[in-house]
């Protein structure tokens, strides 16, 4: 989600909550001779509010599972998730009096900080990456269809090269000692460099063969290679070469899309399990604190 002017109300509300809480905390801390404590009424209130914010933030996952229930627009939930989730950190700090406490509370604190930090990282990614993806991957496709598109690119490239060089045909040649071997029929000499380039570089690149060094992965190097190729090919092969270059560019963009997609959604692999652990341990902490 883009953090823009439409977040102004949430920002103001969050600042007010933060300001009021800070004021209350300072007053409370100053008036407590033994220092602030999570077990005091004020400390407990901060704890309940902070945990409530965390629970609300955690409910976003459930909200997404029932996307069409009219429980409020999903974007409102996400805004709440962002701002209230962020506010939960100072609330818990006020609750704990900026102390990490015992093992469980220390773990909880570390988890909370990590979750909020990973959330901020994710929010930043989701603020910038969509625009980057839009500008840098104009040939973007649906992520789940990338493998299928790649297969199509290979098929298309094969057809283009076969169109210029002729299909690779094998000829059975009898051996003097009996038996036979299959020999490939050579392509016309003038277009041999294209076949050679395709077999050695472009096709492995399209097939995602990581065992080879892939010059074509870099746009500038690729342009240089194709330029060089055109100088040795007859002019009637230039059109096919241009199309191969376009295929190469599409493959580069698909790779970039995959990378960006992983960045854009990969952080959730950290954020979501840690959030779940935080909520579970938070419940354990609340029960233990209230009971004992």
């Amino acid at each position: 989600m883009r953090i823009d002017a439409t977040h102004r109300k949430w920002l103001i509300a969050s600042l007010i909550i933060l300001g009021v809480s800070t004021f209350v905390y300072i007053a409370y801390a100053a008036s407590s001779p033994a220092g602030p404590s999570g077990g005091s009424a004020t400390g407990l209130t901060f704890g309940i509010v902070g945990f409530a914010f965390m629970i609300f933030a955690g409910l976003l996952a459930g909200r997404k599972k029932v996307a069409i229930w009219r429980l409020g627009r999903a974007q409102t939930w996400l805004r709440g998730h962002l701002w209230l989730g962020l506010l939960s950190l100072p609330m818990i700090f006020f609750h704990a009096g900026f102390q990490f406490g015992g093992v469980l509370t220390r773990v909880l604190m570390i988890l909370l900080i990590t979750v909020v930090a990973s959330g901020l990282f994710g929010a930043a990614l989701q603020h910038y990456m969509p625009r980057m993806m839009t500008s840098e991957v104009p040939m973007e496709t649906i992520f789940e269809q990338i493998d299928h598109v790649r297969d199509q690119l290979v098929t298309e490239a094969d057809a283009l090269v076969d169109g210029v060089c002729g299909a690779t045909q094998t000829e059975q040649v009898a051996l003097s000692g009996g038996g036979a071997i299959a020999l490939a029929t050579p392509a016309p000499a003038a277009v041999l460099p294209l076949r050679d380039f395709y077999t050695r570089q472009l096709r492995p690149f399209l097939l995602h063969d990581h065992r080879r060094h892939q010059t074509l992965a870099a746009r500038a190097d690729s342009a240089r290679l194709f330029e060089g190729l055109r100088t040795v090919l007859p002019s009637d092969a230039h059109d096919a070469t241009r199309k191969l270059e376009e295929i190469c560019e599409e493959e580069r963009q698909l790779r970039r899309q995959v990378r960006m997609h992983h960045w854009q959604h990969g952080w959730l692999l950290l954020h979501v399990p840690l959030s779940l652990a935080l909520l579970l341990l938070g419940c354990v902490h609340a029960i233990m604190a209230l009971r004992y």
């Binding site: 989600m1 997404k64 996307a67 069409i68 974007q75 939930w77 996400l78």
Partner: peptide, 13 residues
């Protein structure tokens, strides 16, 4: 519904 579900469910506006 007052709003199409796809629009209603988009968390990113």
């Amino acid at each position: 519904f007052a709003e199409p579900s796809c629009v209603y469910a988009c968390p990113h506006d």
